[in-house]
């Protein structure tokens, strides 16, 4: 990797850092809107998902990695969502969405 490439990467890191700070401030700001639990969860997790994607894509270089690594993470994410969905499926008759 040439010095120019590294400089280009560093500029991206700084932009991602700025975006993460702004999105963190937005996350806290949204919490003061006192939205209902459903929309608040959806909005909060959407912002977290954007921040997480920025970290994974740019700091962890996933955006420019080999396809094999993308598959490893894609498969683990599929099982991750299974883990999140299993409680909803098994407890489907007992959901209250505690607020």
């Amino acid at each position: 990797m040439s010095h120019e490439d590294i400089d280009h990467h560093v500029r991206i890191y700084m932009r991602v850092f700025a975006a993460l700070v702004v999105l963190t401030i937005v996350t806290v700001g949204v919490s003061y809107l006192h939205l209902a639990p459903g929309p608040a969860l959806a909005l909060g997790l959407t912002i977290a998902l954007i921040k997480g994607s920025l970290v994974a894509c740019y700091f962890m270089h996933l955006i420019s990695e080999k396809k094999m690594l993308l598959w490893v993470m894609a498969i683990s994410l599929v099982f991750f969502f299974f883990e999140l969905l299993i409680p909803m499926v098994t407890e489907g008759n007992n959901l209250h969405m505690g607020a």
Binding site: I75, S76, F79, L84, P87, H96, M97, G98, A99
Partner: peptide, 25 residues
């Protein structure tokens, strides 16, 4: 890291289970 995703995923799953299963949170 993929195994770590599953570890934290299990705990987040536990969070969802307890939160949606309670009348007050």
């Amino acid at each position: 890291l993929a195994s770590e995703v599953m570890l934290f995923g299990a705990l987040f799953g536990g969070y969802i289970l307890l939160r949606v299963g309670s009348t007050e949170w």
